[in-house]
Simulated assay, not measured.
Amino acid sequence: MKKLSLAIALFLTVLSTQAQTKSIPNITAQAPDEQESLAKDYFSQIMGVAMSATSNVKLFQFVYDWIGTPYHLGGDTKNGIDCSGFAYQLYNKVFNTAIGNNSRNIFSMVNPVDKEELKEGDLVFFKIHSRAITHVGVYIGNGKFAHASSSKGVMISYLADPYWTRYYYKGGRLLNDQQPVQNN
C-alpha cells in the first residue's frame, strides 16, 4: 500500500501542479467519488486496462502493490510468492474470500468460464508442460491477467501472448457458495 499511496500522491501532486499552471481544476480538493474516478484513470493508464464504473479499484491497487514481488515456490509474502500464493492473497485481501492453496485445489472451487466471458477477478488456469494444472492467475480485463511468474515474479501478462495461448487451460469463476464479496 505504501507504493500505491506514494504513486497516487505523486500523481495528484503532478496534476495539482498542472492545475496551477494550466488552469486545470485542482483535483486534491475533489470529492471521494472524483478521487476514485482519478484512481481508476490512473490504473487504466499504468496497467493498460480500461476500468469501468463497476471496476474494483481495490483489485487494481492490490495488483499494483505486488508488481515486481519476486517468485518463490511456496511463498506467500512480499519477500517471495508463487502463483497460487498470489491468487490466495489477492482473494483474501480484495474479496475477503479464502481459496485453495495450489492451482489444482483452486480449480476445484470454480465453474469453468469461456475465455470470451472472463470478468475482472475471474481465475485463469494453465497446464504448462504438464497434463495437470500448474499455474493460476487473476483476470483483470482487456485480455490481461496478473500472476506470479517463475521468471519475473508478480506481473501482468496478455492471454493472447503465444506462450500463454499455448498453455491456457480454462477460466473459472468461484462457485456460487464461494462468491467473493466486493470490498471497494
Rank of each mutant, 00 (worst) to 15 (best):
Y139M: 02
I156A: 00
K58A: 13
M47H: 12
G153K: 01
A39Y: 13
F86T: 01
M109K: 03
L59Q: 09
F125N: 05
K78A: 02
W66I: 09
H129S: 15
M155Q: 15
Q61H: 09
I27S: 02
M109E: 09
T77W: 11
M51G: 14
G100A: 03
A50Q: 14
F95D: 01
H135N: 13
A148K: 06
T69H: 03
N142F: 04
F60C: 01
F145Q: 15
L38G: 00
I156Q: 04
D82Y: 12
R131H: 07
F126V: 10
A87R: 05
F43L: 01
L118C: 10
S149K: 11
A29N: 14
K78C: 14
R104G: 06
T97S: 11
G143Y: 07
G74K: 03
F95H: 07
N105E: 15
C83G: 04
G75S: 07
P32S: 05
L123D: 06
I140Y: 04
G141I: 02
E34H: 07
N79M: 12
W66K: 06
L38R: 02
T134G: 10
K119D: 08
H135Y: 08
H147C: 05
T54D: 10
G137E: 10
F62S: 06
V154M: 12
V124K: 08
N56R: 08
V138Y: 04
T134W: 09
